[in-house]
Design a protein around this nucleic acid. Sequence first.
DNA 1: GCCAGTTTCAAACAAATGTTTTATTCTCCT
DNA 2: AGGAGAATAAAACATTTGTTTGAAACTGGC
Lengths: 221, 221
Amino acid sequence: MPSYNASAKERILDVAGEIFGEKGFKNATIRVIARAARVNIAAINYHFRDKESLYGAVLEEVFSQGFSRFPANMDLAPDADPQQRLRAFIRAMFYRLQSCEGWGGIAGRGRLIARELVDPSPAFEAILDRYIKPHRDLLLTIILDIMGTDPGPRKLMPCVLSIIGQCVYYAMASPVIRRISIDNAPTEENLDRLAEFVWLFSLGGIAKIKEETHLPSKEAV
Amino acid sequence: MPSYNASAKERILDVAGEIFGEKGFKNATIRVIARAARVNIAAINYHFRDKESLYGAVLEEVFSQGFSRFPANMDLAPDADPQQRLRAFIRAMFYRLQSCEGWGGIAGRGRLIARELVDPSPAFEAILDRYIKPHRDLLLTIILDIMGTDPGPRKLMPCVLSIIGQCVYYAMASPVIRRISIDNAPTEENLDRLAEFVWLFSLGGIAKIKEETHLPSKEAV
DNA sequence: GCCAGTTTCAAACAAATGTTTTATTCTCCT
DNA sequence: AGGAGAATAAAACATTTGTTTGAAACTGGC
């Protein structure tokens, strides 16, 4: 995070992430961003051409930093079994999405990603290829290793989506979750606890899916 | 769904749901809504005072219709066991969120709800009390019935969120899911298949959580 | 010391957009 | 038929907002 005396370009990039995340692309105005970055309005267009390009740069910066600060194998022993790899994957996802050091939880950049999932901007296509798809593939192999056998794409991909869905939902629906639940402040303790829960829940889910897959006797429709 | 010859007010309400869902509140302009509803711009302000009130009316209408068309006990036998009640709950949620008769999946009103989860509008507060919270409480009792014993709020509420999270994620991230997965068109067959998957996955998750809860021997930190 | 290139600044521009106004048409009751 | 109230239409208004412009200030190298 750029300090108070960082260059104008860095300050803009940093502040824009916060404001885009909080307000969304359309509601965030370059005037507000400029004021928060202590910069003239024209400086934004000078350094980033236009608002949309600035947004693209922010998106790339946010993903790059998020994945390098919290890689999917965070705190993982080199010889860890697939269950522990899943645990690390989920925990990294929680920290990346919600911790202050990551995408900042409720008020911060996490919502920027949430918004992209709901309606992706043009700049998101590159993010998909560079970050999301490799991340999905990693989870795919972890699940395959846990199961031991391939249940086929009709079961495997939903496993991926169910696991990612849980992680993402906590982050993207946090404004509502805070209203219908409690204890969801993104403190380190809560993130660890929730990640642990989602891990166990998902292990149970994977086991159940595997069990049902290898009991094809019930209904051979 | 109001027919071609419905009253102007009905046409506006109907069309506004579609356009708000597709573009979001800020990006949807009353001029576009007016043209699509074959109505003068001023008619919107005449019938709904201002844009924000129109949005509030749309939100209420969307939730009211969604929950009455697909109640959480959809197709459920009166004497069903808690597992079947969970199945119906999840299936109703998928249909409500994604089917054409419901909130219309990808291009339709489903994304309106997704946007509300990410950043709720002032009008959402009432929706929370009238629809979301009772819905959450219903799921709470179902999970309690499945488990048989109360694992405490630290385990119970996350179960709710994990289940709802899976359902919502399929709907709200559908633009991205379509890109990283396949077979996710909201046809009746696919919705049934996915709901069935999420049901099994969640049953496994609940079982695992229950199992871990009643093995408190491992680490009594 | 001076100059080319870079960066910052204030002001203005043009387009979009929610809202209001005023007039006209429609509807229905007596 | 007539008229009061509801509904619709066209135009104008006031703001907001992304972008551009042209000048000023700054920076580093000769």
